[in-house]
């Protein structure tokens, strides 16, 4: 039983309650750093690290933190992890860090992270909290990657810097620019809606058929 529970927590973040596509959280880094796949993945990994780490800590200490100062404590914990991530990236991959610029520190303000602490980690045991964090962060990473990949493929004709269409490809510059971020995410959400709509329609048809048969 226990196992399927944590699996459930994991999968819901990836797909059903995807923080970006379904809950529409964490928009700022989502749009700001996804002009290339590598940046998106780096950002996703950093967020992953921060979310999982802070969820672990918050969940571990959840009974010790007084309710009144819990948010302050969460923020201090998150900010610490972010600083750690910031310096690690700066030391290991200075080029990527330069591209991401100020957006690494801004992970602190990602409402998804604080939201998970408040809604989940501070209430559930460590194991579930970590699974939930992995799921959510994984979903976030997935969303970042898909957006980054789309924007890089169209905007630069490349993926992870590897040219896909040869030298003569005309890049769609707008994809790398800010409007492209908004538009691409808007269109992706549109497809999500469309998918949901088709699914509902299909389910309704099935239900109708069942009722007709019975």
């Amino acid at each position: 039983m226990k196992k399927s529970d944590s699996y459930e927590e994991f999968i819901k973040g990836i797909w059903r309650d995807n923080p970006v596509f379904v809950q529409v959280l964490g928009m700022c880094p989502m749009l700001a750093v996804t002009n290339s796949a590598i940046n998106a993945v780096a950002m996703g990994m950093a967020t992953f690290f921060v979310l999982v780490g802070s969820s672990f800590l918050v969940s571990s200490f959840r009974n010790w933190i007084p309710k009144q100062v819990r948010i302050s404590c969460f923020i201090i914990i998150i900010a610490t992890f972010v600083t750690v991530a910031d310096y690690t990236l700066l030391a290991l991959v200075p080029k990527v860090h330069k591209e991401l610029g100020a957006f690494i520190p801004l992970i602190v303000a990602n409402c998804m992270i604080l939201g998970r602490q408040e809604a989940f980690s501070s209430r559930y045991p460590v194991r579930l909290a970590v699974m939930d964090a992995i799921g959510m962060a994984g979903g976030f990473l997935l969303a970042l990657f898909s957006l980054g990949a789309i924007r890089e493929i169209l905007g630069d004709g490349a993926l992870f810097g590897i040219k896909l269409f040869g030298e003569n490809f005309e890049p769609w510059v707008i994809m790398i620019l800010p409007p492209g971020g908004f538009l691409t995410l808007g269109v992706i959400l549109l497809f999500f809606n469309w998918f949901k709509f088709k699914k509902d329609e299909f389910l309704a048809e099935v239900a109708e058929a069942e009722r007709g048969g019975g």
Binding site: E170, W172, V173, I174, M175, L177, P179, G180
Partner: peptide, 10 residues
């Protein structure tokens, strides 16, 4: 505007 932002050179 879309074209100008997308294909600025052309």
């Amino acid at each position: 505007a879309f074209l100008l932002a997308t294909f600025p050179i052309a």
